[in-house]
Write a protein that binds this DNA or RNA. Structure first.
Lengths: 300, 300
DNA sequence: AAAAGCGGTGCGCTTGCTGCACCACACCCG
DNA sequence: CGGGTGTGGTGCAGCAAGCGCACCGCTTTT
């Protein structure tokens, strides 16, 4: 859109960090871009960039403007999706930031089910840790977040919440496999792998393990990737940990998953959320409702 | 701002109802304006106007666009106010739609107190009935509404609420003046004046009077203006009705105000609100907080 | 001291927007 | 029924805004 050109150019300069670099990205001369920036600042009434020897950087006023630009772009996209919606087209794009546990089963199935009814809607799904997911929401880079135990919650508006007890995953013949639920101290006596610190499973395990005296959380292998840890379980007889929404045990007859006793380890809270106060595009809003009913079907 | 020109032109066409009339308002040729509109529709991908023999009218897509334009303009004003705020200027404008009862004492005092600390902030205060106030919020024509008993509440986000029992205002020597509270049936036996149907006081009185059998609500004089009714009380010995926030009895020693018994007439709810989900400009947001504390000081 | 990178500027040139005149059409009213 | 008046739309010529090019002054790097 023509009238958003200034916003686009400003955004490009912010990303590139210098007018000259941005001018190459936008296929325009540095001088022309420079003049557009200067003219905008003049009309706006305030400088938005600090001029540095090696480029430009946003000043506080520019930070506010940047947020306005992002919000307006998202608003405009929502407007177009609303308009195409009332002409019956059912198009749109939904971008989701989620915890890893949602990647293998839950989200693919939910999205496929939704797309079977609305083939015009496209999706972006990115695994993000709790901090990154919240940041993406506030930068309008993602419409929806579905993460375990988000931290700050200032811009995160919870739409639906569901508790998920951590499960210990082991081979079917493991000594603990015949119990319906397992105690943390028993599990930690066996070789185990664990996710890295920034993941919610690890944080919950750490809190719980600190209450134990006889045993420690001492993983053989640490990883940010649950995918990797699942495959590692096939190579060495070690217990791994995962939320049940990330498991589909029928597909893996050689493994069993047993919940950790609730009195040992607090369950993880899976929170579905969006940017506080934001009105989502129609496609995203509708898919959000689908997610809520899918999650509600999971909870007892 | 240059990049908002298209929005301004579109808004002008909407207001004028025809491209030619709008072109005069905007000091541009009709042909140029026509081309701008056509170009915008082409880039936007959808028509936004219905072409009629006597002019143009918005289609549903245009209605959505109009709301986007209004929202964006308000957002941009908020951005500028935030920016000037961080450069320490403390400027801004606050527009308020309110019930009449707030006009004589409450709002003038609150605004004067606020302006004594922030002289750069200007105000618009307009009396509006409940329906009009809600409409102004959703059209971004007012930032804040302070009204009794709003009706639909779909776009009205309540920020603070306070109950106000209706008071009967009479001359000091009136037969009912020695009671601490008065019964509705007693009041209605005396000559009385009442506001017109669209005002909250009247609506509450009607509901209460319908429960009575012996007496009726039969005002000698009806008016939309409480100001008029107050002055009328000086000419004829009649009882009038008003919320206490609109009264300052110390200034009128010849009159007394007595609350109607709560078991006879439900108190009016004075609701302070804004457009649902909207982020107000800094000046408005700050004044809103002042209003909340002023109202809280009133409530027992 | 030279080179490289940065933002800013003067100057022709092209592109795109404007204004004018005019068209086709619908409605109103005598 | 037929002209008058209003509407949105269009072809064309002129003009202003924005562009690319070359260059400047500055700081940092080498």
């Amino acid at each position: 859109m023509r009238h958003l050109k200034d916003y686009d150019f400003i955004d490009a300069v912010i990303r590139a960090g210098s007018i000259r670099k941005a001018s190459e990205d936008m296929n325009i001369t540095a001088s022309a871009l420079n003049r557009r920036i200067n003219r905008f600042e003049e009309e706006f009434g305030y400088e938005i960039f600090e001029r540095l020897p090696r480029g430009v950087r946003l000043n506080p006023a520019g930070e506010l403007l940047l947020h306005h630009i992002r919000a307006h772009r998202s608003d405009f996209a929502r407007l177009k999706s609303q308009v195409s919606d009332l002409s019956g087209v059912r198009r749109g794009h939904v971008s989701i930031a989620c915890s890893q546990a949602l990647l293998p089963y839950f989200l693919p199935r939910a999205i496929a089910r939704y797309r079977s009814e609305h083939p015009g809607v496209t999706f972006t799904v990115n695994p993000r840790d709790r901090v990154a997911a919240e940041r993406e929401l506030s930068e309008f880079a993602s419409d929806i977040a579905l993460v375990f135990e988000p931290l700050t919650m200032v811009d995160f508006e919870v739409v639906f919440a569901i508790a998920q007890p951590i499960h210990a995953v082991m081979r079917a013949g493991h000594p603990l496999a015949d119990q319906t639920e397992v105690r943390l101290r028993d599990v930690l006596r066996y070789p185990h792998v664990a996710p890295s610190e920034k993941l919610a499973v690890r944080a919950l395990l750490e809190v719980a393990a600190r209450r134990l005296t006889s045993v420690d959380l001492s993983p053989l292998v640490e990883s940010e990737s649950f995918d990797f840890m699942r495959h590692y379980g096939a190579c060495e007889d070690a217990i791994s940990f995962q939320f049940p929404i990330g498991l589909d045990m029928e597909q893996q007859p050689a493994l069993v998953a047993r919940p950790l006793a609730a009195r040992d380890v607090a369950p993880g809270n899976l929170l579905l959320g969006q940017l506080r106060g934001r009105t989502l595009p129609v496609a995203s809003a509708r898919f959000l409702r689908e997610l809520i009913s899918a999650l509600r079907a999971l909870s007892p």
